[in-house]
Design a protein around this nucleic acid. Sequence first.
DNA 1: CTCTAAGCGAGACGGTACGTCGGGTCTTGAC
DNA 2: GTCAAGACCCGACGTACCGTCTCGCTTAGAG
Lengths: 207, 207, 207, 207
Amino acid sequence: MGRPRDTRVDEAILAATRELLARHGYAGLTVDAVAEHAGIGKAAIYRRYATKQEMVFAAAVHRSDLAPPPDTGSLRGDLTCLVEDIVATLGNPAASSAVLGLLADLGAPSALADRFHASFVTSQRAVVAELMDRAVARGELGAPPDVDLVHALLAGPVFATLYLQRRRPDGLAERLGRMVAETLRLEDRAAGHGGHATGSAAGSPTA
Amino acid sequence: MGRPRDTRVDEAILAATRELLARHGYAGLTVDAVAEHAGIGKAAIYRRYATKQEMVFAAAVHRSDLAPPPDTGSLRGDLTCLVEDIVATLGNPAASSAVLGLLADLGAPSALADRFHASFVTSQRAVVAELMDRAVARGELGAPPDVDLVHALLAGPVFATLYLQRRRPDGLAERLGRMVAETLRLEDRAAGHGGHATGSAAGSPTA
Amino acid sequence: MGRPRDTRVDEAILAATRELLARHGYAGLTVDAVAEHAGIGKAAIYRRYATKQEMVFAAAVHRSDLAPPPDTGSLRGDLTCLVEDIVATLGNPAASSAVLGLLADLGAPSALADRFHASFVTSQRAVVAELMDRAVARGELGAPPDVDLVHALLAGPVFATLYLQRRRPDGLAERLGRMVAETLRLEDRAAGHGGHATGSAAGSPTA
Amino acid sequence: MGRPRDTRVDEAILAATRELLARHGYAGLTVDAVAEHAGIGKAAIYRRYATKQEMVFAAAVHRSDLAPPPDTGSLRGDLTCLVEDIVATLGNPAASSAVLGLLADLGAPSALADRFHASFVTSQRAVVAELMDRAVARGELGAPPDVDLVHALLAGPVFATLYLQRRRPDGLAERLGRMVAETLRLEDRAAGHGGHATGSAAGSPTA
DNA sequence: CTCTAAGCGAGACGGTACGTCGGGTCTTGAC
DNA sequence: GTCAAGACCCGACGTACCGTCTCGCTTAGAG
């Protein structure tokens, strides 16, 4: 019962967090500043989020449950598509700061650390697993490969490009999708599995 | 003139920083705690390092200029070796926390940000470039590929495994070295270059 | 038109205020706590009282308009009676906390400050004036003395005993009434007034 | 060891507290405001005082250990002198607000409550006891009266005048000293003690 | 062999942000 | 229009950390 939470306040908090995150980065983000910028009181923030980290998580990461993966008809297309999603998510400066900041802040295992993992990592992993199954169904792969490895091969280079090299990952999705698809097919064949010889398709379209 | 710096103090600072970094993570690391744990005064720290970041950098990152790359005789061996170095560097929990923390803290360009980049990223990049040249010299590749891309393909998955998946990267170097070497050869041939047909090496499965 | 105020709410507010005042003192009294303890909403409180001070005033001070002074037949008896009233009023722990708290809070002149003054101070002063007139009429005093001084002589020691010494003022009224009555008669005679020589009463020791 | 407390900071805190106390009263006094007004950080305050109350106590009450009572040669003079001291102490607007505010805030027994009592009440009580002994030694009184009662008779009216009537206590010390001295002598004789008949002295100099 | 500049542990300093709490206002849906 | 519930804005509280600044002492190398 009682007065319901004001939706405009929710949105104002998230919007302000995202803007200040983009403008000043994760370090440099102040709860007071968010409150002032959103035209609300700090209590309204802490009524929703127990800590600054929770707020940032909600503002910049939570919703990125990673949309259901569209089937492009080929492993390579699917992977490219997934990488494009990851790039799009992290390309946003707010999310970019937030993910890195949270990753650094959430050293000790905690409830939020788990939720962050679930929202960000587990969901990506699930998508990867789905794509592998599709490839097997299609006959592109004989057996589904190590999901964590594939995930690392896809998400890792995006991280490296953005956070280590501090470059825009232009064209990365395309190239990464192609390379990983090719690698997976090679590994698959080398392991003695092997779909019904779709292998040749892989060699042809270099983009 | 005057009294020279006490070497034992230098070491005590670095040791304490590394220990506390490993124990409490980058967030959770306090300059006061380092001073107390090292049995020294804060002034002794700030006489050496201008900021907490500098201290952490010196304690956990600085020396990792990445040893000169040993020539293993094959692209795949060289890459595996490099990834092993990266894994070894970041496997240490102190360095692990430190790198992530500094990455998050050093949002704005600064002198330290540049030095961090130089010590960590540029040196890795240089090694990658060297390995590419070796491969070309050996005839494994017809033309040196995009160094940044290769760097991202090597370092990225290590980051993803450690920081996103929070797993130990056991066996990652081996697999990653093989996959990337193979991918590079494929790309190279597809691009119409092509060393003197060392391609067969790709077929030899696993190791 | 509209729903009438619920009388039980009025009483619940006042009762809860008094209880919490007695239990936690003025400083530890919270409007939220009053609402919860009374099983009502804060709005019901603020609909009746503009501020926490008003509420406390109403709960613990307002009604103490100081009953009409009973004529005991002697100045000494009247004064004793008045002091007993004051002691009874402030002896209640709720009222005790409330008066002190309001006194401290109501620094700046305000409407409530005036009402507090009127309800608490002015009414006492009026009673004192009345008692003085009675004494003059009776012939115990030749001229009515400075009312404020007499008030201070009566109420002050009660305050000092309760708030400074933190003791229960047992037996204080009796002794204070006697002393002040005697003092006033002495002053009166010294000033050259003098009722019809009731002075001898002064010699009658004790009671 | 370590850097010693800066005396100027101590003084700046106390001075700022006193000024803001006088300007805005006890309620309305902010620790942040004190820090800003003193040009120091909040930490410097909380390093010295655990709470706002402690700070106010130190600034406005602590030092009022009540100077050693000067011997004026007569009970009446001594009492007048003491009341003048009390009036002088509480006449200061800062001390005035502080005493009342602390009295109201320190409802529950606590370490500070005890120290406040000791510094403010006990010291006054000790002076009163001393004056009573002097009077007995002088022969003005046959036996020392109830010290708490006398203390209440002296301090109480000052409180009542200042805090209840909100008047300046001009001329109060004089009148109060005379009245209480006279009362005590009367009580003393009535109780059957009696110094060597100095009684007549009381009647003469009315001022 | 003294003098002196610099290092040292300790800890206070000014700031700034945190997360909590209280006061007084406003809003919802039930009555 | 009142009620219980509870969200809202505001602003103070006391804590913690950063990077700086003394203190009084120790330690080496220059004269």
